[in-house]
Design a binder for these strands. Structure first.
Lengths: 236, 236
DNA sequence: AGGCACACGTGAAAC
DNA sequence: TGTTTCACGTGTGCC
């Protein structure tokens, strides 16, 4: 703690020299919140010998002050840009804003991965799966909605697609992604959907049942009725 | 500016009272960067009458100091959380970090909308379109890759899908989304793909030509050869 | 009053 | 070397 005397001298020096007023012609209308305007005629150190290159030190201090102001403005401008990108007004706290940003980035990344990382290979067996891909690690935001990934693998019967669309519409499911691949006469459809605000969990069972009956209808009409096996991913 | 005298008095008061050292038993090893430890025996105002409830004011000051520290820690913790969510190490600047966050949020939102907001209605005419959906307004990040939205509308011939997949694979295009809808015996496929790091712009033409030959092959084999019109969106 | 949030200027450390 | 970034304590305005 040998530098405390330096600090003390520096602060006292600024008080004595009345920096902003006497030396630097800064705009007088600026927000000078911490400047001094009173006179110090009673101060005992009024006339003191000028240290060598004290103006250098003052200039450096002024540069430092302005650079710091620029840095603050840069950070705040980015913060304001973030305010426009998020559902939030301009009066939200800096900390709350950053919390919202963290949550939003997590949500977006999860949604991207849900709509992207589905590898679709039609298998030899008929399969239905409805998986709830809940973000389990960090967020726990839980705004009522749920993201489901439904997979349907069966004979290549493209006329089933309209029925599938009807199912989604009747369950009020919004389709984030619909992927379809055919291989050797078989097809796999992967649907990534978000549920309604309220009926999140029930949608899983309903969707699964609807897909099941769709698959049965498909097989009853299909030309080849060889394979009719439910895969291991299916939910009872 | 009638409050400047108050500020001056306040600061002088702290200098005189030597706050952190005399009154508050804070841990001596803490980072007391702006405290004073020198003696002020030469100061003319050494003995002054104690203001009423000055300890209250000092306690308030201490509360203020600690609250501000808590606020800083809250903000910095969110900032560090963001550091883990982005491709950046822990030594990136606060401002640069926020700039990256802004850019990333924009990218993610754009990617989401690209893979989501495609409305797929099969039309009566055969159509090919390959559109480059470049984020034109703010970012200009341009890391070489390009996001294309390819649309193919033709007779419902689901056996064309494998050829389509082959085309994408040969052009090194990564599929972000593949959407397919059928209506009245016709189908429309919308593919959202990202190009390779290098061959971004050429992929547009190549993809368009490949889809064109695919469509011609489809029509030459199709049962009904009624419609064979290229839509207005087609390139070259 | 009193808590909360912000901007400011400044010392210190890194490069 | 000076430039840049950070944490800190503080003044001030707004509930």
């Amino acid at each position: 703690m040998q530098h405390q005397m330096e600090i003390e001298n520096s602060e006292l020096f600024q008080i004595l020299s009345n920096t902003n007023h006497s030396f630097f012609p800064e705009p007088a209308s600026s927000t000078m919140q911490q400047s001094f305007s009173g006179s110090f005629s009673c101060y005992p150190f009024e006339a003191f010998d000028a240290p060598p290159h004290e103006d250098k030190a003052l200039a450096a201090l002024r540069n430092h002050k302005e650079a710091e102001k620029r840095r603050r403005e840069r950070i705040n401008s980015h913060l304001n840009k973030l305010r426009t990108l998020l559902p939030c007004n301009s009066k939200t706290d800096k900390a709350s804003l950053l919390a919202k940003v963290v949550q939003r980035v997590k949500e977006l990344k999860q949604q991207i991965s849900e709509t992207t990382e589905s590898e679709t290979f039609p298998s030899e067996t008929d399969e239905i799966s409805v998986l709830s891909t809940t973000g389990d690690d960090g967020g726990g935001d839980g705004d009522g909605r749920l993201t489901l990934k439904a997979s349907l693998c069966c004979e290549d019967r493209s006329d089933l697609i309209p029925d599938l669309v009807e199912i989604l519409k009747s369950l009020h499911l919004r389709t984030l992604k619909a992927e379809m691949a055919t291989l050797g006469g078989r097809t796999r459809n992967v649907l990534v959907v978000t549920t309604d605000k309220e009926h999140g969990v029930e949608s899983i069972k309903f969707l699964h049942n609807s897909l099941k009956s769709l698959l049965e209808q498909s097989n009853s009409n299909a030309i080849s009725k060889r394979r009719r096996v439910l895969g291991p991913n299916s939910i009872a």
